[in-house]
Write a protein that binds this DNA or RNA. Sequence first.
DNA 1: TCTGAGCTATGGACTCCATCGACCTACGGC
DNA 2: GCCGTAGGTCGATGGAGTCCATAGCTCAGA
Lengths: 150, 150
Amino acid sequence: MDSIDLRLIDLLRENARSSYAELARKVGLSAPAVHERVGKLEAAGTIRGYRADVDHEALGLGVTALIGIIEDSGADTDDVLTAVRAMPEVESCYFMAGVESYQLTVRVGTIAELEQLIVRINRTPGVASTRTAIALSTKWENRPQPGISS
Amino acid sequence: MDSIDLRLIDLLRENARSSYAELARKVGLSAPAVHERVGKLEAAGTIRGYRADVDHEALGLGVTALIGIIEDSGADTDDVLTAVRAMPEVESCYFMAGVESYQLTVRVGTIAELEQLIVRINRTPGVASTRTAIALSTKWENRPQPGISS
DNA sequence: TCTGAGCTATGGACTCCATCGACCTACGGC
DNA sequence: GCCGTAGGTCGATGGAGTCCATAGCTCAGA
């Protein structure tokens, strides 16, 4: 993990479909060398995968909301997690410090669907209550933080 | 935007480095046809880009937190936004309904750095107060929600 | 019903890339 | 000093990306 690796990661976070040849030109190595480095980063789990970044509105998922979950005292936290995991609308899930055990990012098409989703989460065994905040607009998301690849 | 487009988007959300030839095999078209479809999706802004999904801990960014910002009454909301945008630690930024105008996802290396970041945000003109919640663990993030590409 | 326009797929051709193997160099341990 | 290893370059080749000409399909209008 040297500065060239960091630079490769930066470049792939910027455009994951860059060709190895292009990456090689930018970091000043040969294509096979870059190929091997990227392969090692993938094998080590430093690079977990490559995702297309889509316009959710264009796909009919224009409503984004953040939902905090407060669990029942004595609830089995794994049950809640399993139930939430089965809901495809839940894009991200963090286990939090504080009163709200989980913080979810959810993505749905309409406010009505959001309402149904909240009801479903509240009905889940182990969930005491939820707190929902709706995003009016997304200023930016998943902005890559550049590594210090001097 | 038909079911083949949706399927292409799903496949690229799963693995953005798939070759056109591979995508073509999976959707039952020729590679040039897929190439043109993906190009149109990019031009239309439906596909915004392709990002490597990295292990933040391996890059020394093991601390994730969610920060809500309450603005001063009468603050120029654009000033706050501009200041926050200039902070590379802020990975995502939503403009919210409710008391907290902005909700941020931030990524830093240590709790000490988080503290410094919170101080910096609180010092920003227009910011009345902040509320920070620390993620103890990330269950999942940016999970692609499959389109209904029957 | 026939016709022409426009869209989108296919197949071929050419260029460029991915990837493998062979070899070269720097470095650390014996 | 010698050898083993890690990590690089170079060259070759098979396959992919991409441009282009062409063929079907849909639909509007005579």
